[in-house]
Simulated scan of single mutants.
Amino acid sequence: MGTGLYLYGIFPTPGPQQLEAQGLDKQPVHTHVLDGFTFLYSEAQQERYLASRRNLLDHEKVLEQAMHTGHRTLLPLQFGLIVEDWRTVTEQLTATQGPKLEQLFQKLDGRREVGVKIFWDAEAEVQALLAQDEQLRSERDRLEGKSLSMDEVIRIGQAIEQAVEARKQSIIQVFRSTLNPLASSALENDPLTEAMIYNAAYLIAWDDEAAFSEKVEALDLQFEGRLRIRYNNFTAPYNFAQLAN
Score class of each variant (00 low, 15 high):
Leu192Ala: 08
Leu101Gly: 03
Asp190Gln: 14
Leu56His: 03
Glu43Trp: 09
Arg176Tyr: 10
Glu20Arg: 08
Asp190Trp: 02
Asp220Tyr: 02
Ala44Arg: 04
Asp85Met: 11
Phe79Ser: 12
Asp121Asn: 13
Asp58Ile: 12
Arg226Asn: 01
Glu134Tyr: 11
Leu77Glu: 07
Ile229Leu: 13
Pro12Thr: 02
Gln103Asp: 15
Thr38Ile: 06
Asp25Tyr: 02
Glu209Arg: 10
Thr38Arg: 04
Ala195Asp: 08
Met150Val: 07
Thr73Ile: 09
Gln46Trp: 07
Phe39Trp: 12
Gly70Phe: 13
Glu144Met: 09
Trp206Gln: 12
Gln222Lys: 09
Ile171Phe: 07
Met196Gln: 00
Leu136Arg: 07
Ile172Val: 14
Leu24Lys: 07
Ile160Met: 15
Thr31Ala: 04
Thr69His: 07
Ser147Thr: 08
Val114Ala: 05
Thr178Asn: 09
Tyr238Ala: 05
Asn189Lys: 10
Gln127Arg: 13
Leu56Gln: 05
Gln103Glu: 15
Leu203Trp: 00
Trp120Pro: 03
His68Ser: 13
Ile172Trp: 04
Thr31Leu: 05
Arg111Tyr: 12
Leu34Met: 13
Thr88Met: 14
Ile204Phe: 00
Lys107Trp: 09
Glu43Met: 02
Leu243Ala: 10
Leu179Ser: 05
Lys107Cys: 09
Pro16Ser: 04
Ala183Gly: 00
Ala241Lys: 03
Ala95Leu: 11
Thr38Tyr: 10
Glu64Phe: 08
Leu7Val: 04
Lys26Cys: 10
Arg176Glu: 10
Lys26Asp: 13
Glu84Phe: 11
Leu57Phe: 14
Met150Arg: 11
Ser42His: 15
Thr13His: 11
Arg54Thr: 10
Glu217His: 11
Leu77Phe: 05
Arg87Tyr: 13
Ala218Phe: 10
Ala205Ile: 01
Gly157Trp: 06
Gln162Asp: 14
Ala236Met: 03
Glu152Trp: 00
Ser147Cys: 07
Asp85Cys: 14
Ile197Tyr: 03
Glu194His: 05
Glu209Asp: 12
Tyr6Ala: 06
Thr235Ala: 15
Arg228Pro: 01
Gly80Ile: 12
Arg226Leu: 02
Met67Cys: 08
Leu187Asn: 02
Ala159Val: 00
Leu24Asp: 08
Ala205Leu: 09
Arg112Asp: 08
Ala205Arg: 02
Gln106Glu: 14
Ala163Trp: 06
Tyr198Met: 02
Glu84Lys: 15
Leu19Val: 07
Thr69Arg: 12
Trp120Leu: 04
Ala163Gln: 02
